[in-house]
Amino acid sequence: MNRLEVVDKLPFGFYLDGSQVERILLPNGSAPADCEVGNMVDVFIYHDSEDRIIATSKIPLAFVNEVAVLKAKSLTSVGAFLDWGLEKDLLVPFSEQERPMSEGLEYVVYVFEDPETGRLAASTKLRDFLSEDGHDLETGKKADLIICGRTDMGYKAVINGTHLGLIFKDEVFKPLRIGQKTQGYVKRVREDGKIDLCFQFHSERARKELTDLIIDDLIAHDGLSTLTDKSPPDEITQRFGASKNAYKKALGSLFKQKRILIEKNKITLVK
Protein backbone atom coordinates (compact mmCIF):
# COMPACT_ATOMS: atom_id res chain seq x y z
CA MET A 1 0.00 0.00 0.00
CA ASN A 2 1.11 3.57 -0.70
CA ARG A 3 0.11 6.86 0.95
CA LEU A 4 -0.23 9.45 -1.83
CA GLU A 5 -1.60 12.98 -2.13
CA VAL A 6 -4.72 13.79 -4.17
CA VAL A 7 -3.66 16.56 -6.56
CA ASP A 8 -6.59 16.88 -8.98
CA LYS A 9 -10.30 16.03 -9.28
CA LEU A 10 -12.04 15.07 -12.52
CA PRO A 11 -15.55 13.80 -13.42
CA PHE A 12 -14.26 10.21 -13.63
CA GLY A 13 -11.95 10.21 -10.61
CA PHE A 14 -8.88 11.75 -9.02
CA TYR A 15 -5.22 12.11 -9.86
CA LEU A 16 -2.61 11.23 -7.25
CA ASP A 17 0.95 12.47 -7.03
CA GLY A 18 2.90 9.42 -8.15
CA SER A 19 6.31 11.07 -7.91
CA GLN A 20 8.50 9.04 -10.28
CA VAL A 21 5.57 7.83 -12.41
CA GLU A 22 3.89 11.26 -12.48
CA ARG A 23 0.14 11.29 -11.85
CA ILE A 24 -1.77 8.08 -11.07
CA LEU A 25 -5.51 7.75 -11.70
CA LEU A 26 -7.79 6.82 -8.79
CA PRO A 27 -11.20 6.07 -10.40
CA ASN A 28 -14.36 7.19 -8.58
CA GLY A 29 -15.41 3.58 -7.93
CA SER A 30 -12.10 2.86 -6.20
CA ALA A 31 -11.81 6.09 -4.18
CA PRO A 32 -12.75 6.69 -0.52
CA ALA A 33 -16.17 8.36 -0.06
CA ASP A 34 -14.65 11.54 1.41
CA CYS A 35 -11.83 11.90 -1.13
CA GLU A 36 -10.85 15.53 -1.88
CA VAL A 37 -7.92 17.40 -3.39
CA GLY A 38 -5.17 17.78 -0.77
CA ASN A 39 -6.09 14.56 1.06
CA MET A 40 -3.54 11.81 1.69
CA VAL A 41 -5.01 8.45 0.72
CA ASP A 42 -3.82 4.87 1.21
CA VAL A 43 -3.94 3.06 -2.12
CA PHE A 44 -2.74 -0.08 -3.87
CA ILE A 45 -1.00 0.44 -7.23
CA TYR A 46 -1.30 -2.03 -10.11
CA HIS A 47 -1.80 -2.24 -13.90
CA ASP A 48 -5.37 -2.21 -15.22
CA SER A 49 -6.68 -4.22 -18.21
CA GLU A 50 -5.27 -1.58 -20.59
CA ASP A 51 -1.85 -1.82 -18.89
CA ARG A 52 -2.14 1.63 -17.31
CA ILE A 53 -0.83 2.23 -13.78
CA ILE A 54 -3.91 2.74 -11.63
CA ALA A 55 -4.76 3.13 -7.93
CA THR A 56 -7.46 1.71 -5.69
CA SER A 57 -8.31 2.14 -2.02
CA LYS A 58 -9.48 -1.49 -1.96
CA ILE A 59 -7.13 -3.93 -0.28
CA PRO A 60 -6.23 -7.01 -2.36
CA LEU A 61 -6.51 -10.48 -0.86
CA ALA A 62 -2.78 -10.93 -1.39
CA PHE A 63 0.26 -8.72 -1.95
CA VAL A 64 3.48 -9.34 -3.87
CA ASN A 65 5.62 -12.18 -2.42
CA GLU A 66 2.70 -13.58 -0.44
CA VAL A 67 0.95 -16.95 -0.51
CA ALA A 68 -2.84 -16.89 -0.70
CA VAL A 69 -5.84 -19.11 -1.34
CA LEU A 70 -7.74 -17.63 -4.30
CA LYS A 71 -10.63 -18.79 -6.48
CA ALA A 72 -10.37 -19.16 -10.26
CA LYS A 73 -13.05 -16.93 -11.85
CA SER A 74 -12.41 -17.63 -15.51
CA LEU A 75 -10.22 -19.49 -17.98
CA THR A 76 -8.90 -17.75 -21.10
CA SER A 77 -6.45 -18.27 -23.93
CA VAL A 78 -3.62 -16.79 -21.81
CA GLY A 79 -4.32 -18.57 -18.53
CA ALA A 80 -6.61 -18.56 -15.48
CA PHE A 81 -7.84 -15.40 -13.79
CA LEU A 82 -8.25 -15.35 -10.00
CA ASP A 83 -10.53 -13.22 -7.83
CA TRP A 84 -8.22 -11.27 -5.53
CA GLY A 85 -10.65 -8.55 -4.43
CA LEU A 86 -9.89 -5.91 -7.08
CA GLU A 87 -11.58 -4.74 -10.29
CA LYS A 88 -8.98 -6.53 -12.41
CA ASP A 89 -8.52 -10.24 -11.73
CA LEU A 90 -5.08 -11.77 -11.15
CA LEU A 91 -3.59 -13.85 -13.97
CA VAL A 92 -2.00 -17.28 -13.58
CA PRO A 93 -0.30 -17.82 -16.96
CA PHE A 94 -0.29 -21.37 -18.33
CA SER A 95 3.47 -21.46 -17.76
CA GLU A 96 2.88 -20.88 -14.01
CA GLN A 97 0.28 -23.63 -13.55
CA GLU A 98 1.49 -26.81 -11.83
CA ARG A 99 -1.42 -28.57 -13.52
CA PRO A 100 -4.37 -27.25 -15.58
CA MET A 101 -6.70 -25.14 -13.44
CA SER A 102 -10.51 -25.29 -13.32
CA GLU A 103 -13.02 -22.46 -13.03
CA GLY A 104 -14.67 -22.14 -9.60
CA LEU A 105 -12.00 -24.02 -7.64
CA GLU A 106 -9.68 -22.50 -5.03
CA TYR A 107 -5.90 -22.69 -5.41
CA VAL A 108 -2.90 -21.99 -3.22
CA VAL A 109 -0.83 -19.48 -5.18
CA TYR A 110 2.23 -17.28 -4.84
CA VAL A 111 1.87 -13.65 -6.00
CA PHE A 112 4.90 -12.21 -7.80
CA GLU A 113 5.92 -9.28 -9.98
CA ASP A 114 7.11 -10.12 -13.46
CA PRO A 115 10.61 -8.57 -13.65
CA GLU A 116 10.28 -7.91 -17.38
CA THR A 117 6.82 -6.29 -17.52
CA GLY A 118 6.31 -5.08 -13.94
CA ARG A 119 2.86 -6.71 -13.96
CA LEU A 120 1.57 -8.76 -11.07
CA ALA A 121 0.78 -12.43 -11.60
CA ALA A 122 0.35 -15.62 -9.58
CA SER A 123 1.76 -19.13 -9.72
CA THR A 124 0.78 -22.54 -8.39
CA LYS A 125 4.39 -23.69 -8.84
CA LEU A 126 5.19 -22.98 -5.20
CA ARG A 127 8.56 -24.75 -5.30
CA ASP A 128 9.87 -22.02 -7.60
CA PHE A 129 9.27 -19.38 -4.93
CA LEU A 130 9.38 -21.08 -1.51
CA SER A 131 12.30 -22.77 0.22
CA GLU A 132 12.36 -26.49 0.93
CA ASP A 133 15.51 -26.13 3.03
CA GLY A 134 14.62 -25.81 6.72
CA HIS A 135 18.07 -25.36 8.21
CA ASP A 136 17.07 -21.82 9.20
CA LEU A 137 13.93 -23.05 11.03
CA GLU A 138 13.67 -23.95 14.70
CA THR A 139 12.53 -27.48 15.59
CA GLY A 140 9.44 -27.47 17.79
CA LYS A 141 8.48 -23.96 16.72
CA LYS A 142 4.77 -23.32 16.13
CA ALA A 143 3.96 -22.29 12.57
CA ASP A 144 1.10 -21.06 10.40
CA LEU A 145 0.36 -23.64 7.72
CA ILE A 146 -1.60 -23.69 4.46
CA ILE A 147 -2.32 -27.16 3.12
CA CYS A 148 -1.26 -27.02 -0.53
CA GLY A 149 -1.05 -30.57 -1.84
CA ARG A 150 -1.46 -34.27 -1.21
CA THR A 151 1.03 -37.08 -1.86
CA ASP A 152 1.22 -40.79 -1.16
CA MET A 153 3.17 -39.95 2.01
CA GLY A 154 0.84 -37.26 3.38
CA TYR A 155 0.12 -33.58 2.87
CA LYS A 156 2.33 -30.75 1.64
CA ALA A 157 2.01 -27.42 3.45
CA VAL A 158 3.26 -23.84 3.15
CA ILE A 159 5.06 -22.81 6.36
CA ASN A 160 4.71 -19.16 7.43
CA GLY A 161 4.47 -18.17 3.77
CA THR A 162 8.18 -18.86 3.20
CA HIS A 163 8.87 -22.63 3.22
CA LEU A 164 7.37 -25.93 2.09
CA GLY A 165 7.11 -28.99 4.33
CA LEU A 166 5.42 -32.37 4.64
CA ILE A 167 2.92 -33.74 7.16
CA PHE A 168 3.17 -37.54 7.11
CA LYS A 169 -0.03 -39.59 7.12
CA ASP A 170 0.52 -40.89 10.65
CA GLU A 171 0.65 -37.29 11.94
CA VAL A 172 -2.78 -36.47 10.49
CA PHE A 173 -5.64 -36.98 12.92
CA LYS A 174 -8.20 -34.55 11.53
CA PRO A 175 -9.72 -33.98 8.07
CA LEU A 176 -7.62 -31.75 5.82
CA ARG A 177 -8.38 -30.03 2.52
CA ILE A 178 -6.29 -28.15 0.00
CA GLY A 179 -6.27 -24.45 0.89
CA GLN A 180 -7.04 -25.06 4.57
CA LYS A 181 -5.27 -22.72 6.98
CA THR A 182 -4.20 -24.24 10.28
CA GLN A 183 -1.34 -24.32 12.78
CA GLY A 184 1.29 -26.96 13.41
CA TYR A 185 4.89 -27.50 14.42
CA VAL A 186 8.24 -28.03 12.77
CA LYS A 187 8.80 -31.62 13.86
CA ARG A 188 12.18 -32.24 12.27
CA VAL A 189 14.60 -30.88 9.69
CA ARG A 190 16.26 -33.75 7.87
CA GLU A 191 19.91 -33.82 6.79
CA ASP A 192 18.94 -32.84 3.26
CA GLY A 193 17.02 -29.84 4.64
CA LYS A 194 13.55 -31.26 3.98
CA ILE A 195 11.02 -30.20 6.63
CA ASP A 196 8.73 -32.62 8.48
CA LEU A 197 5.67 -31.10 10.15
CA CYS A 198 3.21 -32.27 12.79
CA PHE A 199 0.11 -31.03 14.57
CA GLN A 200 1.37 -32.10 17.98
CA PHE A 201 4.99 -31.63 18.93
CA HIS A 202 5.99 -34.69 20.91
CA SER A 203 7.91 -33.06 23.74
CA GLU A 204 8.52 -34.90 27.00
CA ARG A 205 5.84 -32.80 28.66
CA ALA A 206 3.28 -33.56 25.93
CA ARG A 207 4.02 -37.29 26.14
CA LYS A 208 3.57 -37.30 29.92
CA GLU A 209 0.30 -35.42 29.65
CA LEU A 210 -1.02 -38.02 27.21
CA THR A 211 0.05 -41.00 29.34
CA ASP A 212 -1.60 -39.38 32.36
CA LEU A 213 -4.81 -38.96 30.36
CA ILE A 214 -4.74 -42.63 29.36
CA ILE A 215 -4.29 -43.77 32.98
CA ASP A 216 -7.09 -41.45 34.15
CA ASP A 217 -9.35 -42.83 31.42
CA LEU A 218 -8.59 -46.43 32.45
CA ILE A 219 -9.33 -45.64 36.09
CA ALA A 220 -12.63 -44.02 35.11
CA HIS A 221 -13.59 -47.18 33.19
CA ASP A 222 -12.71 -49.74 35.90
CA GLY A 223 -9.24 -50.37 34.50
CA LEU A 224 -10.38 -51.48 31.05
CA SER A 225 -10.42 -49.83 27.61
CA THR A 226 -11.27 -51.19 24.17
CA LEU A 227 -9.45 -48.27 22.51
CA THR A 228 -6.29 -50.05 21.32
CA ASP A 229 -3.46 -49.13 18.97
CA LYS A 230 -5.56 -50.70 16.21
CA SER A 231 -8.55 -48.41 16.78
CA PRO A 232 -9.59 -45.84 14.11
CA PRO A 233 -7.66 -42.52 14.33
CA ASP A 234 -10.85 -40.44 14.71
CA GLU A 235 -11.91 -42.42 17.81
CA ILE A 236 -8.50 -41.81 19.41
CA THR A 237 -8.64 -38.11 18.54
CA GLN A 238 -12.18 -37.77 19.91
CA ARG A 239 -11.22 -39.23 23.28
CA PHE A 240 -7.69 -37.91 23.79
CA GLY A 241 -7.22 -35.12 21.23
CA ALA A 242 -4.10 -36.92 19.98
CA SER A 243 -2.93 -38.56 16.77
CA LYS A 244 -2.92 -42.33 16.45
CA ASN A 245 0.87 -42.27 16.23
CA ALA A 246 1.18 -40.33 19.50
CA TYR A 247 -1.33 -42.66 21.18
CA LYS A 248 0.59 -45.76 20.09
CA LYS A 249 3.83 -44.32 21.48
CA ALA A 250 2.11 -43.47 24.77
CA LEU A 251 0.75 -47.02 25.08
CA GLY A 252 4.21 -48.40 24.37
CA SER A 253 5.71 -46.24 27.11
CA LEU A 254 3.09 -47.33 29.65
CA PHE A 255 3.61 -50.98 28.67
CA LYS A 256 7.37 -50.69 29.22
CA GLN A 257 6.66 -49.17 32.64
CA LYS A 258 4.45 -52.23 33.33
CA ARG A 259 1.47 -49.97 34.07
CA ILE A 260 -0.78 -51.54 31.43
CA LEU A 261 -1.30 -54.82 29.58
CA ILE A 262 -1.92 -54.62 25.83
CA GLU A 263 -4.07 -57.30 24.22
CA LYS A 264 -5.58 -57.56 20.78
CA ASN A 265 -8.95 -56.03 21.68
CA LYS A 266 -8.34 -54.27 25.00
CA ILE A 267 -6.03 -52.34 27.28
CA THR A 268 -5.95 -53.29 30.96
CA LEU A 269 -4.60 -51.25 33.87
CA VAL A 270 -2.08 -53.10 36.02
CA LYS A 271 -3.15 -52.83 39.65
Results as ranks from 00 to 15, higher is better:
R3H: 10
L4V: 05
E5V: 08
E5R: 13
E5H: 01
V7P: 00
K9A: 14
P11L: 07
F12T: 10
G13S: 06
D17C: 01
Q20V: 08
Q20W: 01
L26M: 05
G29M: 04
P32H: 07
D34V: 00
C35L: 01
C35A: 11
E36H: 04
V37R: 03
M40H: 06
V41G: 01
D42P: 02
V43D: 03
F44M: 04
I45P: 06
H47A: 07
H47I: 01
D51R: 14
D51S: 13
I53D: 09
I54A: 08
A62P: 08
N65K: 13
V67F: 13
S74W: 02
V78D: 15
V78R: 14
L86R: 09
E87N: 09
E87V: 11
K88N: 12
D89P: 05
L90Q: 12
L91N: 06
L91C: 12
P93M: 07
F94I: 10
E96D: 13
Q97N: 08
E98G: 03
P100T: 11
M101A: 03
G104M: 05
G104Y: 03
E106A: 07
Y107G: 06
Y110I: 08
V111N: 04
F112N: 06
E113P: 00
E116W: 10
T117G: 04
R119C: 09
R119M: 13
A121Y: 09
A122K: 01
A122C: 12
K125E: 14
D128W: 14
D128P: 01
L130S: 07
S131P: 03
D136M: 06
D136K: 14
E138R: 11
T139V: 15
G140N: 04
K142M: 11
D144E: 14
I147P: 00
C148T: 10
T151P: 12
D152R: 14
M153V: 14
G154C: 10
K156A: 03
A157M: 08
L164F: 13
I167C: 09
K169P: 00
E171C: 05
L176R: 02
R177A: 02
I178T: 12
Q180F: 10
T182F: 03
V186W: 15
E191R: 13
L197R: 05
F199I: 01
F199K: 01
Q200I: 15
Q200M: 11
S203Y: 08
S203V: 09
E204W: 09
R205V: 08
R205K: 14
K208L: 09
L213N: 15
I214R: 11
D216G: 00
L218H: 09
S225I: 03
T226Q: 09
T226G: 02
L227G: 05
T228V: 02
D229T: 03
D229G: 15
K230Q: 14
S231F: 05
S231L: 06
P232I: 03
P233V: 06
E235Q: 15
R239Q: 14
A242K: 08
A242R: 09
A242T: 06
Y247S: 04
K248S: 13
L251A: 04
G252T: 03
G252A: 02
F255R: 01
K256V: 04
Q257E: 15
K258D: 03
R259W: 04
R259Q: 12
L261E: 08
K264T: 11
K264F: 11
K266C: 01
K266N: 05
I267T: 01
T268Q: 10
V270K: 06
